[in-house]
Nucleic acid binder design. Structure first.
Length: 514
RNA sequence: GGGCGCGUAGCUCAACUGGCAGAGCAACUGACUCUUAAUCAGUAGGUUGAAGGUUCGAUUCCUUCCGCGCUCACCA
């Protein structure tokens, strides 16, 4: 028998003894006067004399995180809302039966106590307990008390223990919640309507990624988990919702990594009658507001760096300007704008870039715009720590964006980078149905050329555009990555409560031997 | 899929060059009515991830497998 099974049995036995003392094993409620955070807020600064004079009566509940027994008295710490409060239990005050109950308690149990507040000799605010109410038994032992839980796998698999034992982890998820609230407040106050669009889609559109596939039995049809809500949100702008947004999960069947999780949360919003410049400004404001709401200021620690979200610290440059700006010294003289103009000149640029130590893959068959994006990623991404807006993206990688009026090979599209991550993507929405059909056809050709991520044709979407979609700007914001940046977390798994893990052995039906 | 690293008690970690598998916490028993990493005395807890190999002898060296982490590739 493993130790935790022994402890389980021992504690079940204690639970029976607790019942024998007249307590319910799993009571349904406990009336409290304060939460532990409320008590700390109200009485943390009250001197001992005041407490003795007023004898503040309290009823509080919490989980026992430490317990010390000394003959006929003892101390314990209760935890609630991530905060701890000490209780003092002595036989004289709780009676023989009450003290028998106290002796049957373990670290991890939930109890409620009533009594009054006082300060110990060392000055710690403490509840002088007069009655203990047993609430719930912890049948399994908690992690070790001062090293806590550090095993990364256990932290993710048993996040509840992680949250219980590691206050910093709890704080990250509180911050994440604040972030989402901030974004909702920002958009709601500007007249945006929050909507929910399909997660299961017959065509996985709106981004370039491999989708998850599932099957609906009654309709006997293949469905894809969405890779983006984009095409549905834009159908809503056709329907007359001029300002819409959605905060929800996307699913992409790709690799995992420090900034990639197969399911991730994205904010997408669309506003009619403004272009990519309009949503660029709006998104910058949204991010600054979010930073202020989460950080309480504009500056946040990011590893060895400090990211400053203040508007004065943002930079804006075109993709081509960025490649020029961050062109590595060892690759020779900086390119000129004209070097991006033709397939041949871009090919020469790649050759020059690769003559340095860096090397990017180059496929002569791929469209020139794709090559330029590869060049951009290789040359600049590591430099983009502070908030930076990169605008004007090649048309060939932007099948849903409007072209620049004077340069049809380029679109009115931008991305925001910070902490070496892409965190937002926006553009003037392509609303010409015929051009949209041509772009889809172009994507199909790439798909036939072996690009599994190329966009699929969506006839219903083209039909919607044919009814006339107002000019609009739209944006996607990676909520998880933004949460990482605002909480100094360096793995996306640290901002997702239950990140995807390989299933635990013995956790599924198939693993159980017959 | 490639590379690097890790796997020892429930948790956090030791074990020298290959030589009797250990400590703290948690657990159990006892003492203790202001402790807070409570203290003191005692008890129990292990197929060292698995299988095989080398060796008088393997936690240690080798091989394969399993699991996990990091990283690269894929991810516009």
């Amino acid at each position: 028998m493993a130790l935790d099974e022994k402890i389980y049995e021992l504690r079940r036995d204690k639970l029976r003894q607790i019942e024998a003392l007249g307590q319910k094993a799993y009571p349904t409620r406990f009336e409290f006067t304060h939460t532990i955070p409320e008590i700390l807020l109200e009485y943390a600064d009250k001197p001992a004399d005041d407490l003795d004079r007023s004898r503040v009566p309290v009823r509080v509940a919490g989980r026992i995180m430490a317990i010390r027994l000394m003959g006929k008295a003892g101390f314990a710490h209760l935890q609630q809302g991530g905060q701890k409060l000490q209780i003092y239990v002595k036989s004289d005050a709780v009676g023989v039966q009450g003290f028998e109950l106290y002796k049957l308690l373990d670290v991890g149990d939930h109890i409620g106590v009533s009594g009054y507040l006082f300060r110990t000799r060392t000055g710690e605010l403490t509840v002088h307990v007069e009655e203990i109410t047993f609430l719930t038994k912890d049948l399994l032992p908690l992690p070790e008390k001062w090293h806590g839980l550090t095993d990364v796998e256990l932290r993710y698999r048993q996040r509840y223990l992680d949250l219980m034992m590691n206050p910093a982890v709890r704080h990250v998820f509180l911050q994440r919640s604040r972030l989402v609230q901030s974004m909702r407040r920002f958009l709601d106050s500007r007249g945006f309507l929050e909507v929910e669009t399909p997660m299961m889609q017959p065509i996985a559109g709106g981004a370039m990624a491999r989708p998850f596939v599932t099957h609906h039995n009654t309709l006997d049809m293949e469905l894809y988990l969405r890779i983006a809500p984009e095409l549905y949100l834009k159908r809503l702008t056709v329907g007359g919702f001029d300002r819409v947004y959605e905060i929800n999960r996307n699913f992409r069947n790709e690799g995992l990594g420090w900034r990639w999780n197969p399911e991730f949360t994205m904010l997408e919003f669309y506003q009619a009658y403004i272009d990519y410049r309009g949503v660029m400004d709006l998104t910058q404001q949204l991010l600054i507001q979010a930073a202020q709401d989460v950080l309480g200021g504009t500056k946040g620690k990011w590893g060895e760096h400090e990211i400053d979200w203040a508007s004065s610290n943002w930079r804006r440059m075109t993709m081509r300007e960025a490649v020029i700006e961050y062109w590595p010294e060892r690759a020779g003289a900086k390119p000129a704008l004209s070097d991006f103009a033709s397939p041949d000149s871009v090919k020469t640029l790649v050759a020059r870039f690769n003559s340095g130590h860096v090397h990017i893959a180059y496929d002569p068959k791929e469209p020139t715009g794709k090559t330029i994006v590869n060049l951009f990623d290789a040359a600049t991404e590591e430099h983009l720590i502070q908030p930076t807006i990169i605008y004007e993206f090649p048309t060939v990688v932007s099948p849903l964006s409007k072209q620049k009026a004077d340069e049809p090979d380029w679109t009115e599209r931008w991305e925001i980078f910070a902490g070496q991550m892409e965190i937002a993507n926006g553009f003037s929405e392509l609303n010409d149905p015929e051009e949209q059909r041509r772009r889809f056809a172009q994507q199909l050709a790439q798909r036939e050329g072996g690009d599994e991520e190329a966009h699929q044709m969506d006839e219903d979407y083209v039909r919607a555009l044919s009814y006339g979609m107002p000019p609009a700007g739209g944006v996607g914001v990676g909520v998880d990555r933004l949460a990482m940046l605002l909480t100094d977390s360096h793995s996306i798994r640290d901002v997702i409560l239950f990140p995807l893990l390989r299933p635990e052995k013995g956790s599924t039906q198939e693993d159980i031997p017959k």
